[in-house]
Design a protein around this nucleic acid. Structure first.
Lengths: 136, 136
DNA sequence: GTCTTTGCAAATGATTTGCACGTCG
DNA sequence: CGACGTGCAAATCATTTGCAAAGAC
């Protein structure tokens, strides 16, 4: 299914902005923030506005098309929408995907509370930044 | 060890503001935000300012005295500083402590990245709000 | 007296909203 | 033409910062 059909199937009108934003996330595995997506896409869509990017991303997230990664005071977006976790480096700020088997996510409830979503964020120094430190 | 001695041991001067904020978090299991702590403590400390609350909480978190719970656009503070996870209700917004055994947290690294912290947040409808819905 | 902390107000940064305009069926 | 989407600017909200005054040792 192409992007246009996919959006239609979610009752989202496939405008050029929405298609480009969606495809941007699918082809960039870098977990960009709204600002970055905007800065890149404006090259193709010169009249694009930042609020359209924000609104579109929120719409996609509400429809389960993408994941939001809430970090300290910033939100990153992930086109890979299967449940998984993230690692954010305290030095370079890069966001990595982490796939671990979480048995508790197979449960529907935890302590009586209904589980709809789980967002796990690791923090520390990533392997790249560790290497850089060793070289010094 | 009382609060005064504890703060001293972390090289934090035990001022009345700091002592009261720390003790507030230790006695309130409700995961308040900075605003709530401020609103409650100003009754005892009429000259307290919101920025002092923010600065103090940040200082405590950096020293491992408390935990920060980063939710969508808001930060909650938790006086219980042992690693654990949280559940936030989408309906009432209440924050619950979740204690699960995370085997991977015993590891020092994940995919080569050094683990310093892990913050896991569940989302959904809490048991209280489920009951309220059933009653309707 | 010097060094630290506080409290206020102003600044910041991410995100959202209001609204007029444009678009497309 | 009528509904929906876009883009701009202004608004908002949580949090941080600059700085003068107050307090501690």
């Amino acid at each position: 299914m192409n992007t246009k059909e996919l959006l239609k199937s979610k009752n989202i009108k496939p405008t050029i902005q929405r298609i480009k934003i969606y495809e941007y996330l699918k082809t960039h595995k870098t977990h960009p923030d709204a600002e970055t997506i905007y800065a890149d896409l404006i090259k193709e869509l010169p009249t694009l506005s930042l609020s359209t990017v924000y609104n579109t991303l929120k719409e996609f997230a509400n429809n389960g098309l993408i994941l939001e990664v809430f970090a300290e005071h910033k939100t990153y977006f992930d086109g890979y929408n299967q449940p998984h976790n993230h690692y954010i480096c305290d030095i370079c700020g890069k966001v990595y995907d982490i796939n671990i088997e979480f048995n508790f996510l197979k449960k529907k409830k935890i302590s009586g509370h209904l589980i709809k979503k789980f967002c796990g964020i690791f923090r520390g120094i990533c392997s790249e930044c560790q290497k850089k430190r060793e070289q010094k």
